[in-house]
Write a protein that binds this DNA or RNA. Structure first.
Length: 303
DNA sequence: AAGTAGGTCAACCGCTTGGAG
DNA sequence: CCTCCAAGCGGTTGACCTACT
């Protein structure tokens, strides 16, 4: 037995709204307000529509100060940053963008912005995924990592994003000094980790992950990065940074493991990266690896 | 010019949340 | 507390439009 319908489907009009219906709804709400009761509103307004439908039409289209049309680069940045930190909480994201509706932002993300971001990642490089060495690495200097793809120096090949327009993944200013200085990656990781929430806000940082998973890895082996958060924990501090026009990623658990990588695809298959983008942040636990997934299965997963 | 594929976006569906009784 | 119900929310659908063959 299903849930009772919110209205009598047989007696309500569905589908696109006509200009006349729009006018009726707008006029009624401007004159009388919603009265805090959307269910009763259509009848009062003389509309043969479901209350839900009226609410949606008002909120997404008729409400004053609704902004339609192209999203600005700034709006793109805000959406990307927020999506990376809170996931698909469209209403919260919409609250940060005056005039935009959650529906608008959701559509924009699903149809344009997501693809824009996906375009940043080039076709997969099929390298072996040495996850165990990654997990065990306690690199205090970039070159000490056992990983073949940790930061090696400025002559490495990085992704680069078009300088002319926003790709959704842009350099963050203050990390440039960190990356080009003598900071160990560990120190940089700690610093970044400690301040990530500010960076999201102030430095357009695209940040995957949260404090929630910050204790996933510890040197005493009490837990590992492949715990219940799985790849989410592993990716929790996957930063996308810019160094003089180049980009590289940092993978860190905020504690004893961290490393710079040139290419996230060295560690995560293209599908994982795409999945991370398409499913949202780690916060909502939408990204899982099997807790018991072994190195072997990880190694073979993408190849 | 016609057919097809892909993209966009308004609207719907159904689950979750929170307040009232 | 518990139940009920309306609002809110995110995912999905489908009509329409445009580009491509």
């Amino acid at each position: 037995m299903g849930r009772a319908p919110c209205c009598d489907k047989a007696n309500v009009k569905r589908g696109p709204w006509s200009p006349e219906e729009d006018a009726k709804l707008k006029e009624y709400i401007e004159k009388s307000g919603t009265g805090g009761n959307w269910i009763a509103l259509p009848q009062k307004a003389g509309l043969k529509r479901c209350g839900k439908s009226c609410r949606l039409r008002w909120l997404n289209y008729l409400r004053p100060n609704i902004k339609h049309g192209e999203f600005s680069d700034d709006e793109d940045r805000i959406i990307c940053s927020l999506f990376a930190t809170i996931g698909s909480r469209w209403s919260i994201i919409a609250a940060q963008l005056p005039g935009r509706t959650d529906n608008d932002i959701k559509n924009y993300w699903n149809t344009k912005l997501k693809k824009k971001l996906m375009g940043v990642f080039p076709p997969p490089q099929r390298k072996s995924l040495q996850i165990s060495s990654v997990l065990q690495a306690s690199s205090s200097s970039p070159s000490s990592s056992t990983s073949t793809s940790s930061y090696q120096g400025s002559n490495s090949s990085y992704y680069s994003t078009p300088a002319s327009s926003f790709t959704g993944l842009e350099p963050i200013s203050f990390t440039s000094s960190l990356l080009s200085s003598n900071y160990s990656t560990n120190a940089a990781a700690q610093l970044l980790h400690a301040h990530h929430s500010y960076q999201v806000k102030d430095h357009n940082l695209l940040f995957f992950g949260s404090d929630q998973a910050a204790s996933c890895s510890s040197s005493d082996g009490s837990s590992s990065s492949l715990n219940e958060y799985g790849a989410a924990a592993d990716l929790q501090n996957c930063f996308y940074n810019g160094v003089e026009g180049n980009q590289r990623f940092m993978i860190s658990n905020g504690g004893d493991f961290n490393t710079w990588i040139e290419n996230p695809l060295d560690y995560y298959g293209p599908e994982e990266i795409k999945r991370l983008i398409s499913t949202g942040s780690c916060n909502n636990n939408s990204l899982y690896f099997d807790e018991h997934k072994t190195e072997e299965t990880l190694q073979t997963q993408y190849f």
